[in-house]
Nucleic acid binder design. Structure first.
Lengths: 222, 222
DNA sequence: CGCTAATTCAAGCGATTACTTGAATAATAG
DNA sequence: CTATTATTCAAGTAATCGCTTGAATTAGCG
């Protein structure tokens, strides 16, 4: 006979993972860590929380198995434990999009340019990029680009995009991407590019989605 | 410029879904509701919690968009909101299996017969069942079978399996399935069948996994 | 060695959560 | 209408959570 206790213990373990993704602050950390490994301090700065608070959140994520730590000198670098974690977050977002009215409302409210910004799917971009038909633009911070990016992508962080437009050819269509489907950087980039007369669209999803779709990623030459 | 507030609000929405799956009790409810729609009272009985407590858990799940309610007479029947929910739970389990040592330990401890119980994949079963090579055995309670089951499956709840062995031909291999990869009923069934001289294996995963793989499900003739 | 910076630990506090108990609603049966 | 059953609501309590603050730990640097 199977021990019914085991099942409860398994539920407890899975619930611990659920707890880890039950806080907005931790979801934000997970999104950042899906891009590149980062120190506690850098994460605290990016999220605007105190270092101690950030450290505690990171430990919750680590205990749940979602992230891993690597100590180098006086720094501790955290990183995502694996692509399964990105897939979990994607599943979370899909449920939200499908069944939570508030999510749909938020997406429409802020990103109502959606109709005009029809996103490019990963498959489509992969095919068109191979033929050299598009400029692939990575608008994330340089560190994240360095940790890995789409093959052949050019890195121009959003904040610098205005000043560095000249490096982009106007002849080819530009496809911008950033951290993920709800990261706003690529929206801003596309908006700016179109205002300047570029033909621009955004990739549906970001690097984590691209990677967990099994598509190739260029490792960084930091 | 995009409103950075929107992103925070989106994280809050996703975090609410995380909160919903952050409790063992609610995970158990979700597993049950992935099989069939059920009343509050029936869920309370099955899980061993009070009705009021169960009702409150169900409302948390409902507010997160994971389940839906249907009122019929004095009963309220809850059901899973959609297959996306099953996929979320699967993603949760995959992360657990991959990155939480305790999960692996539990699986090995209780289900260490795993080596001898090599599970059949959905694809393999689909192919072999079409050729009539196996008996597909659903060992879940009759109500869950009635709400949907694998095509051609025979329903014999585990508790009755001992008494109803005669209805199973010994010539064909038997593949048993139940609620999911961590549901113990099919393990018990396979153990019992083997002890009685049957050639038996279990399906890897249960009905929800089968369904969310896009494979056909026979609707119930209750 | 002492100094500084990155991280973690520990204590504390207000807010939230899980569960219980008992009452309030709502639908059905007599 | 009254009694019964299913469900939800409301109040209360112990435990947990998120965040802060300040001290402890650890590694590098002059």
């Amino acid at each position: 006979m199977s021990n019914p206790n085991v099942k409860q213990q398994l539920f407890e373990q899975f619930a611990r993972i659920g707890t880890a993704i039950s806080s907005p602050a931790r979801l934000e950390l997970l999104e950042l860590l899906a891009q590149a490994e980062r120190s506690v301090d850098s994460l605290a700065t990016l999220t605007g929380h105190t270092v101690a608070n950030t450290s505690q959140h990171l430990q919750v994520l680590k205990r749940a198995g979602l992230i891993l730590a690597r100590k180098q000198g006086q720094f501790v670098f955290y990183r995502q434990a694996g692509d399964e974690v990105s897939r979990l977050l994607t599943a979370l977002q899909v449920v939200g999009e499908t069944h939570v009215a508030e999510v749909e409302r938020l997406v429409r409210t802020c990103l109502d340019a959606r109709d005009t910004l029809e996103p490019v799917s990963s498959e489509e971009l992969a095919a068109r990029a191979r033929k050299g038909m598009v400029t692939v633009l990575d608008v994330r911070p340089a560190e994240e680009f360095a940790a890995g990016h789409l093959p052949g992508a050019i890195n121009v962080p959003v904040e610098e995009l205005g000043k560095r437009l000249k490096s982009l050819a106007k002849s080819k269509e530009v496809v911008a991407y950033c951290r993920g489907p709800y990261c706003l950087m690529s929206f801003d980039a596309v908006e700016l590019l179109r205002a300047k007369g570029y033909k621009a669209r955004r990739l549906e999803g970001g690097l984590p989605e691209w990677r967990s779709a099994g598509l190739p990623v260029d490792a960084g030459s930091a």
